[in-house]
Simulated assay, not measured.
Amino acid sequence: MNCEKIKQKVGIRTVLESFNLFPVKENGKTAFYFALDREEKIPSLSVDFIKNKAFDFGTGKSYDVISIVQQVKKCSVSEALKYLGKFDFLIQHQKQKEEIRTQPEYRIFEIKKIQHPALIQYLKTRKVDEQRHLVKELHYELKGKNYFGIGFENNSGGFEIRNSYSKICLGKKDVTLILGEENNDEITVFEGFIDYLTFKNIEKTKNSDYLILNSTVMLFKAMKKLNEYNKIYLFLDNDSNGNITKDKIIMKYENVEDCSSMYKNSKDLNEWFCQRKL
């Protein structure tokens, strides 16, 4: 397949995601990413999902899917075409429908202390009931129906929602940073907030800042923050995503301790904690 057909039929979001690149800001049809060729604090790469192109406001350079691969992999056009050949070639308008992701309409009615018996029971099944003060009970409407769940707030004011039946995010996806004592020089990293609550059960007096990714795709938001600490403790899941995330952090920093051996025969810290014999 020639260059022009590939430019038309391979979605730019899919290509960026293949390199673990995700939007920092997004409105559905367009988004801002961090630059492909440098580190920066403010994202300068504007991506148009409809036009299937990107523009770097820092350098004035335009990108299509082929030149993105060339930039990231430092390769020739023919090598970029070979890389793109692994993607399914879908008709462009079908791809656009998949790529224009909008936030489902929702409305939060009430945020309060955990009181509902079903939520208390859920926390008990995960053996983190004594940490209920660290989460909230949310009542909300989503797509015209009313729900309730355990809410854990992120740095952008969004909420990770959990109950026995659902695992969603209301609002903008982001990490959650919880500060301990002033000028703390160590940070403990978790993939999800249930593992954070579990850790608080185990280590009640530990002095640390805490970073909950709320999803491994949010790692890009965490990497620069981790620069500020002399010691990084990782409590990530024992699955492919957790291992990839762990390896990226270990490759970038020297002061990292992987704590997953503590629960090496379990999926994550909470599963290990629930299954252990007291």
Rank of each mutant, 00 (worst) to 15 (best):
S266P: 08
D185I: 08
K41I: 07
I212Q: 10
D37E: 14
T125Q: 12
L16N: 06
N241V: 05
L234M: 04
K204L: 00
I120L: 15
K53N: 11
K143P: 01
Q92G: 02
M251L: 14
G242N: 06
K231P: 02
M251N: 15
P23T: 03
K136M: 04
L123I: 02
K221C: 02
N241L: 08
E110I: 01
G60L: 08
L134P: 01
I202G: 03
K225E: 11
T59W: 14
K225Q: 10
Y106K: 06
Q94H: 10
W272T: 02
L213Y: 10
D195P: 02
I161A: 00
Q121P: 01
S44T: 14
I168D: 03
Q71E: 14
D195I: 00
N243K: 14
Y229A: 08
R107T: 11
D174E: 15
E257K: 06
R276E: 11
K246P: 08
S76L: 12
F57G: 02
E39L: 12
L119C: 02
P23M: 12
T216S: 12
F89T: 01
L226W: 10
T14H: 06
I150T: 13
I12V: 10
S261Y: 11
I111N: 09
E141L: 15
K73S: 13
N2F: 05
K124A: 13
E137M: 05
K86F: 08
L36R: 07
K74R: 14
K82V: 10
T30R: 11
D195V: 00
L119G: 01
V65E: 05
K221Q: 15
K29D: 13
Q92P: 11
Y196D: 01
P43W: 06
V175I: 15
I194Y: 00
Q121D: 15
Q103E: 15
T176Q: 10
L177A: 10
I91T: 08
C75T: 09
M218P: 00
E181Y: 13
V128A: 06
G11S: 13
R101E: 11
E254H: 13
N20I: 03
N214D: 09
E271P: 07
V15S: 08
H139N: 10
F273S: 02
K221L: 12
E4R: 12
E153P: 09
Q103L: 12
S261C: 06
K173T: 13
G157L: 05
L119S: 04
R276D: 02
V15H: 04
N230F: 05
E153T: 06
L234S: 08
I232Q: 01
D209C: 01
A222T: 07
K225H: 10
S164V: 07
P117E: 09
V72Y: 11
D185G: 00
K252A: 13
H133W: 01
L84N: 12
N183I: 00
K25G: 02
D195A: 04
V77A: 07
Y147M: 01
N27Q: 14
R101F: 12
N241H: 14
L211D: 04
E203S: 00
C274E: 08
Y253S: 12
T245P: 09
V189Y: 07
M223I: 12
K143H: 10
S261M: 10
K51L: 11
L36C: 10
F152Q: 00
C274W: 00
F235M: 00
S260G: 03
F193Q: 03
F273R: 03
K86M: 06
L219T: 06
F199V: 05
F193P: 04
N20D: 13
S260F: 04
K172N: 13
K224L: 02
M262D: 01
D239N: 11
R13Q: 09
